[in-house]
Simulated scan of single mutants.
Amino acid sequence: MKLWLLIGALLLAVLILLLSSRIYFHFSLNRTGQDDRIVLKITALFGLVKLNYSLPVLMFEGVKRGLHVRLEESGIAPVRSSKEDESNIDKDDVQEWMEYGKKALRATQGLKRWMTDTLSHLHITKLDWSTNFSLGDAAGTATAAGALWGLKWSLVGWASQRVKLLHRPRLFVVPVFEDDVKFSTEVDCAGSISAGRVLYAGIRLLVRAMRADEGIRQWKELVREIRSRKREKRAALT
């Protein structure tokens, strides 16, 4: 009897330890001229789970073909291996995602409020955003620099109302007074959220879906529809 109590106490202690751990993420974006690179790193459960998402190719191929992307995934996690996913994102894909969002709203009671509550527990520990650019005209570049400053601070102000910024963001706008048109921007963002909070948010999402009219069935149909669409796109590219 004492042995079972000891095992139960140990399992409970491990569970509390895991739920009290934090999920860390690091997002970086770098665009210089026509070269782009987006990287997202996620670390959870004291480093037992590590996921890396890299987007080394982001190229606009015209109105019809849209945006060509190649996503590389790797990391240390259960039943996970390195792989690449290459596809094109056009206006039809954007319309589909908007339709998926509408269906998710209908399938979940209070989805917007759930998302707002979940984001309020996200801690941002670092946010650096630097932009260097030239419009090829000194007057136009100077005017655009002021507008860009205003846009950046407006976006940061909007985000600060939804997540917790633990440190003051570092924003830079550097006008380059040259005759040629140039543009480069770099974003570096890091933060974390409690693993217990993520689990709690998942449970709340499930409960809200169950409260909606046939919410679970609608979510299953939405997932099947998304998977079917992805298979069709991959088959079309091969």
Rank of each mutant, 00 (worst) to 15 (best):
G150W: 04
F25C: 09
V174C: 04
A144I: 02
L55W: 07
N88S: 10
Q109N: 13
A147S: 05
D36C: 06
L222Y: 06
M1L: 03
S192D: 14
K126N: 10
S21L: 08
E96Y: 06
S154H: 13
A144W: 14
E99V: 05
H167S: 09
G196Q: 02
A236I: 01
V174R: 06
N52Q: 09
G150F: 03
M98V: 12
A104T: 10
G140N: 14
F183G: 13
L155C: 01
M210T: 07
I124G: 06
G62C: 08
A159Q: 13
G75H: 08
R231N: 12
G157A: 12
L151C: 02
H167V: 10
V57E: 12
S154V: 04
E96V: 15
D213S: 05
K220G: 05
L12K: 09
R231C: 00
V223N: 04
S228Y: 12
M210Y: 10
K2S: 07
G146Q: 03
T32A: 00
L17T: 07
W129D: 02
Q161D: 11
W4R: 12
P169H: 08
M98G: 12
A209S: 09
G110C: 11
L205E: 02
K230Q: 12
S28A: 05
K91W: 05
R208M: 10
L12V: 03
D179K: 08
K220C: 03
R106Y: 15
W219T: 04
D213H: 01
L155Y: 02
